[in-house]
Design a protein around this nucleic acid. Structure first.
Lengths: 344, 344
DNA sequence: GTGAAAGCGCTAACAT
DNA sequence: ATGTTAGCGCTTTCAC
């Protein structure tokens, strides 16, 4: 890693200023001089130091990305989107995976500040205790733009990209209602998370809009996990006034439901309609067609990154708070159908 | 981002050297001085610049990670492992997702060189054309340690962590043989990829070890994708001398098989045994128990990172080529069973 | 068109 | 126990 701009200057018989000019395509350089320099660069296999450049220009062209669960393909897709746009703009990504730990998240934030990154994309880890978002705020005040990516926590004072969970749940519920369902059970995610609240809201709105009374007995509070949904589904099946459809707020919970239904020999949708949140690729491939509401993950990453880049262009003073909400897509596969048999 | 070490020095009435000393816990500093400095750091909310430090120390404490498919949880888990160990050693990760593009991969390599990273962890994208591994070699010669993470390509001149695909396939095949299967079909992944070759090898070895002749008609060349496996399975079901078991070389292909079996009302394992590579969480949860060979992904990330860190400690001259092979785990769920009914 | 010089924020001898 | 000085590799005025 020894060869520096000085070596090139020496080799080409010019000053390092001139070398810098050809490196950055700035200012005039005589054609022959440029070629001489380029040749030396080639011969010595020189690569300029981004570190030195950063120090000098006070720009790192690096974005910090903090997410809670890198091994969850939901976040993998978000990062994929982020990465695509970053690539187009020649920005590097420093990644932190917090494993849902607030402590790691805070540490990441501090390390990113050390690294003098230009901006931060973050999905805040649940539950929010205020400390980390406070630190985020100090970063923002330090002129580091922050873009939130959906997630369980919503800090209204940051720019961000979000999914319209309420609309998603609304659409899903409407789809069930249209099929003739009136007794629709819902299994929520952790109810103090933002998505779960919003989704429950959408569900209620859809019922209200169709003059279907909200039956609290049909609202089951889960935690996004499949074990829980399994137990709840068992209970649902035992209800005297049994629902004809289940709306589960996560793909994992759909799986839990399926397990319970499977064990009790309940056929979907003949004996029970079902609809969930988020894709389950495996089931689709083998032909178990479960309808679901799909969040635009890659798009969220892309949109978020673009938002951040826009922010980068403006000075702190003119930087405006911008929150973009993307609509999830309703993907109907037939599991919502109201088949005669399930008119219990 | 204005406050620097000089501001602290001024505020505390000392030289920046002394400040640097307390920052790095190096050399002696009088207790009172230290406290005065720490106080100033707090008051001014100072965070040292990693950039400036890197330039000065010629160390970035940053590792470059290049993987082909961030949205595949296989790689997500690898990164999770990498990230855990990096965190323990206070190393930052610069991530590049290549989307299986050789061009992006090369670009990433060059950007990492600019960033003066300390080392590289990479899963080379398939297919290998030689250019990128050549560039990797120049980096290695530049004293940047490189650790390969499994993948389709194997460059024998780099350190790396690999899965023993041959052993995995061997174990899986043996499990089927033990159950009494003799007619075992195998659907390979892209046969010029390293894992597919090795897995086919393991399959053959297992048969040979049990004096079961290798029937070329039972070897189907696939591409890791489910569509392909679906078609192949249809063919398998039509064979005059129909196999009693299918060994599929990827989880996606298992799904393709399942779809075909499902459509033809073939019950697993009663009418057809099946075993695959890599976990399919969704199926397990709902109770469709498919046996599989599981690669230790997180562990691979961890081991690879540790290997890299070991390399970092040594000078180029003493750096030794070290290749670690991890054993995959055979997870039996019952789908491998030889049930009377499937003796076609 | 090209070069000299200063400076980015830090660390690391070397003094004292 | 603390300060002085030089230097890391680059960019950026400002001269010429």
């Amino acid at each position: 890693m020894a060869v520096t701009i000085n070596d090139i200057a020496k080799a080409a018989g010019v000053s390092r200023t001139t070398v810098s000019r050809v490196l950055n395509d700035s200012g005039y350089v005589k054609k022959e001089t440029r070629e001489k320099i380029l040749k030396s660069i080639q011969q010595l296999n020189y690569t300029p130091s981004a570190i030195a450049r950063s120090l000098s220009t006070n720009k790192t062209n690096t974005i910090g990305v903090i997410i809670p669960e890198i091994n969850n393909s939901f976040f993998g897709e978000i990062i994929k989107g982020i990465s695509q746009v970053a690539d187009e703009h020649n920005l590097n990504l420093i990644l932190f995976n917090t494993d849902d730990s607030k402590a790691k998240e805070l540490k990441a934030l501090k390390l990113l500040k050390e690294q003098r990154i230009q901006g931060i994309m973050i999905t805040l880890t649940y539950p929010e205790d205020g400390v980390n978002s406070e630190y985020l705020n100090t970063l923002k005040n330090l002129d580091i733009p922050v873009v939130l990516i959906d997630g369980h926590v919503e800090c209204s004072n940051f720019s961000g990209v979000f999914i319209d969970h309420s609309k998603g749940a609304y659409d899903g519920t409407i789809a069930l209602i249209k099929e003739g369902h009136k007794k629709i059970a819902i299994i929520t995610g952790s109810i103090n998370s933002r998505p779960a609240k919003n989704r429950l809201n959408g569900y209620k709105k859809a019922l209200a809009a169709n003059n279907i009374p909200i039956n609290e007995e049909y609202i089951f509070y889960g935690d996004y996990k499949h074990e829980n949904a399994y137990e709840i589904t068992k209970k649902i099946l035992d209800m005297k006034d049994r629902p004809t459809a289940i709306f589960a707020m996560s793909n994992m919970m759909v799986l839990g439901c399926m397990k319970a239904l499977y064990e009790e020999n309940i056929v979907v949708p003949d004996d029970m309609a079902i609809i969930g949140f988020d894709k389950i690729e495996a089931l689709n491939i083998i032909g178990m067609n479960i309808s679901f509401i799909n969040g635009p993950t890659i798009e969220m990453g892309r949109t978020g990154m673009k938002l951040l880049i826009d922010n980068l262009k403006n000075k702190k003073e003119t930087r405006e708070l911008k929150r973009i909400t993307l609509l999830p897509e309703l993907v109907l596969k037939g599991s919502e159908k109201y088949i005669g048999k399930n008119k219990v």
